[in-house]
Design a protein around this nucleic acid. Structure first.
Length: 561
RNA sequence: CGGGGUGUAGCUCAGCCUGGUAGAGUGCUUCGUUCGGGACGAAGAGGCCCGCAGUUCAAAUCUGCGCACCCCGACCA
């Protein structure tokens, strides 16, 4: 096998996985978010793919293959050509028909299922594929962590009821636990936002790592775990008091909650915070209690908005809002969204809608009314756990897989309907389940490496044993190598034979870098001690074994990883 | 899309401030010595200095405009 390793990693590689992927010669960059796989790298890729395939098959899912090129009409039908925006790679054929390169396959699988699923008797069914996705990400990053072209195992379940979906969902969930366990990547299921995919519940399988892109909030006591986009919190109770008359007070220079706390001697939770946003082009006035912050993902979901952004200064001024002294008291012309915390609290301090003044004793229902009250609070590290009396801690993590209870969103828009037992027509209840294969490969390295290189778990290793041959022109070495090769082959072990004309140091360094679990050295020195040297890449334990026992010993060592 | 950074040999980089026609290490080829943790010596090949336009007798170096790549943020099933 032609294979090249490198002494140095390119300067742009920050993550250990990115550096090792390149140094050990698994991948080569082509452009931002695009990589070539070498023969060595592709062997690892295929082993990971095979684990996924085996476990999906074992869970009862059936493999399909869908086109990567999608007629754009399909995306218009679901409404997601708008929702995906610029992330969708778009192109036109010679007849000017519009197409997209598939970033995910809910639409296409629904098309397929709509022709297949006709009766409740046709379900449950879970279909999956391992296929290329295209996403024009604004910022690909981290080597194989975020790509523009990548491989995803995406699975879709179809059920006759929500109860039945729970069973399909659980089956997928268990398959995922087995996949990540076999790949050697420890994961933690966490509650997640379902984002542009939509649907009811979703959970992410997070690999906890400081190099992760996501912030996870976890409770050390009860085990609550959620993506910070989704996490709830136990809010401090409001200060109870009877409504008092509203009163305007001067507050020169006070624009932040901390200013009010200092100037008026109130607690932050006695104040109301105002935030201005624009949701799909419409101004929105957001109110939350002063000791809390707004979670923009929750807000976006509550508003059912595709785009949410902060209001720019000129819009603030033209809307007549006074930044730093704004409140919903007397506000007109825009929707008011409030967190329950701002509604429950009595006698809050809020802006007077004129510079350098605030109202005391503002009460919801009397002085202002929210058009919509919903939880939009951001959980922060140190906040109370929503499920016990402990507090939340922050961790970084990488999203390895995501499982969703989609419901009927796509079956309705794409027409996946069936006839139920009672003869009525219903949309199928869907779930979807995704794993990014390249990202998983990167995580395997993040989770399994040391200062010298990769330490592949046996299940994903590109070869079982790495045979280092020294002084191969000596007859005894050549004979032993030949005996070893047939022994390994008897045990069905894949061997990478390094018989290059290189110095021992170079070969050992390369073996460590490339990370094959078992190293066997055939050399005059080892033969002089009675056989071959066998060495465990991870533990670095080594021993001398007779040539005829090398196959057994290698197999036993592999079984330990 | 905002902020920051980088483009010079296959790779990692120096040279740029102060303009004078290209360097190191590593990798590659050949020869010799070496042979258990990235050995040593010798000889060689290898560059449109990201692109375009200026300034200048002269541009890798100065100026302007692009492009690409990386990092942070926004964004992201």
């Amino acid at each position: 096998m032609l294979h090249k390793t490198f002494r140095e990693a390119p300067a742009e590689a920050d993550l250990p996985s990115h550096q090792l992927l390149i140094r050990a010669g698994l991948i080569q960059a082509l452009a931002a978010g695009l990589y070539c796989f070498t023969p060595f790298g592709w062997r690892v890729f295929r082993r990971i793919e095979n684990i996924i395939r085996e476990e999906m098959d074992r869970s009862g899912a059936q493999e399909v293959h869908l086109p990567a090129l999608h007629p754009i009409e399909l995306w218009k039908q679901s409404g997601r050509d708008q929702l995906m925006g610029l992330t969708l790679f778009r192109l036109t054929d010679r007849r000017e028909r519009g197409f997209a390169l598939g970033p995910t396959h809910e639409e296409v699988i629904s098309y397929l299922a709509s022709r297949t699923v006709q009766s409740y008797r046709d379900m449950p069914i879970t279909l999956y594929q391992i296929q290329t996705k295209f996403r024009d990400e604004t910022r690909p990053r981290g080597g194989l962590i975020r790509l523009r072209e990548f491989t995803m195992k995406d699975a879709y379940s179809f059920d006759a009821s929500w109860e039945a979906l729970d069973t399909s969902y659980d089956a997928a969930f268990e398959a995922y636990e087995r996949i990540f366990s076999r790949a050697g990547v420890p994961v933690m299921p966490v509650a997640a936002d379902s984002g542009a995919i939509g649907g009811k519940d979703s959970q992410e399988f997070i690999f906890i790592s400081d190099n992760g892109e996501d912030e996870i909030l976890i409770c050390g006591r009860c085990g609550y775990a959620a993506n910070s986009e989704k996490a709830d919190l136990r809010k401090p109770p409001p200060i109870a008091s009877d409504p008092r008359p509203i009163e305007k007070v001067p507050t020169p220079g006070a624009t932040a909650i901390s200013d009010l706390v200092e100037m008026l001697g109130v607690e932050a939770k006695q104040t109301a915070k105002a935030v201005f946003n624009v949701a799909d082009g419409k101004p929105v006035f957001v109110v939350i209690r002063g000791d809390l912050d707004v979670n923009e993902v929750k807000l976006k979901n509550v508003l059912k908005a595709n785009e949410l952004e902060a209001m720019d200064e000129s819009t603030v001024i033209s809307a007549g809002l006074v930044a730093g002294s704004a409140s919903a008291v007397g506000l007109r012309g825009m929707k008011v969204i409030a967190d329950p915390s701002a509604v429950e609290g009595a006698n809050l301090v809020a802006g007077a809608n004129e510079p350098d003044a605030h109202f005391l004793n503002v009460n919801h229902g009397r002085d202002w009314t929210a058009d919509l009250v919903a939880d939009i609070a951001l959980a922060r590290p140190g906040d109370g756990c929503p499920e016990c009396d402990s507090t939340l801690e922050s961790r970084r993590g990488m999203e390895m897989g995501h499982v969703f209870k989609l419901g009927t969103t796509y079956s309705e828009s794409m027409g996946v309907e069936f006839v139920d037992v009672d003869g009525s027509r219903k949309p199928a209840v869907m779930g979807c389940y995704g794993i990014g294969v390249e990202r998983l490969l990167a995580a395997v390295i993040e989770a399994n490496h040391d200062e010298d290189g990769i330490c592949w778990p046996a299940e994903v290793a590109p070869f079982d044993v790495h045979v280092v041959v020294l002084n191969q022109d000596e007859d005894a070495v050549a004979e032993s190598l030949s005996a070893l090769e047939s022994s390994l082959s008897d045990f069905g072990l894949n061997a990478l034979i390094d018989d290059r004309d290189e110095s021992p140091g170079v070969k050992f360094k390369d073996a460590d870098l490339m990370g094959i679990p078992v190293r066997l050295t055939v050399s005059p020195r080892a033969l002089g001690k009675g056989g071959l040297e066998i060495r465990d890449r991870t533990t670095r334990d080594q021993d001398i074994v007779p040539v005829k026992e090398a196959g057994t010993r290698a197999r036993d060592l592999l079984a330990q990883h």
